[in-house]
Computed example of a mutant assay.
Amino acid sequence: MGNKPLTEFEYLDSMPCNTEVYMQILTQSKPIRLKTRLIGVHSQKAIILEFGEDKNWVLAKHCICDNTSVVVRMFNSFDPNAHVVAFRSSISKLMSLHHWIVIYYPKNLEKIALRQSGRIPVNIHAQLSHNSNDKEEQSGCSVEGHLVDISIRGGGFIGTENEELSVDDKCTLTLLGAVGDEAIHVNVIIKNRQVFDAENNLIHYGLILDSDQNAAECFVQQIILRHLNQ
């Protein structure tokens, strides 16, 4: 018999030390993005992360304190199944002697197999724009709407009808956010378009990602983090 797949929490508990971790400090203005590494996991108790020393950590120091809300994302690059583990939590305490941050063990997890073809439901404000060297033409060939699902292969986008966007067109999908947020975009190809809501003139655009595996995985990871942070 084959090995039984790990549950989401078993997968988190088995995450190796020094795994790369991306953490967002949730503030009243905009999230502060930090990169760190995993010190260890105390099952059902706590997650221990390294307190970083780069300029982003220095700038964020005043926001890092007990009970501050955070979004944490881990990606084990040594796992052939390539899962992302993401969760919301808050800071339990700072251990300045060891330069560690202790995070409360999460109550809920999102564990996503990046290479699976199944769609992950999301709801993210985005823009679909036709790829063109002509800036005036491109400005007229764009639609704002929402990305409603995503996988490593493609996704679904719902936006208003635009006759300039057709099946097999190469486009750019851009995630929209607050002013000053980092632009997140990826090349896509429209594979189908269907009426979603005739009364409000909404179309469902079926998309495939037109990028290499690494770029697609990175894009999906960022979408998961953006979705968690809403």
Rank of each mutant, 00 (worst) to 15 (best):
E161Y: 15
D168Y: 12
I124S: 05
I48P: 00
I224K: 07
I224R: 05
F157E: 13
H83L: 02
E53P: 00
Y205V: 08
V179H: 05
E136F: 11
R33N: 01
I224V: 15
S166K: 14
V84I: 15
E199I: 12
A126L: 11
G145D: 09
A183N: 10
W100D: 06
H204Q: 15
E110A: 13
L207F: 08
L34P: 05
K35D: 10
S43L: 05
S139W: 05
L165H: 03
F87H: 07
Y104F: 11
S151M: 01
I150T: 03
F51A: 05
V179M: 07
E20N: 11
K93G: 06
Q28K: 15
R88G: 01
V72L: 02
E10G: 08
A86Q: 07
S151W: 00
D66R: 02
H98A: 10
M23P: 03
M23G: 02
S29K: 13
L94V: 10
V188P: 03
K170A: 04
V143I: 15
L209M: 14
F9D: 00
K30S: 14
Q213C: 10
Y104P: 07
A178G: 06
A198I: 14
G180A: 13
L12P: 03
H62S: 13
I190V: 11
A82I: 12
D169C: 13
Y105G: 14
E20D: 15
K135G: 02
D181F: 04
M74D: 06
N81S: 12
C63H: 14
N131L: 13
N76F: 03
V72F: 00
G180D: 13
T174M: 04
I47K: 09
F87E: 03
L26T: 01
K135I: 13
V220E: 03
N192M: 12
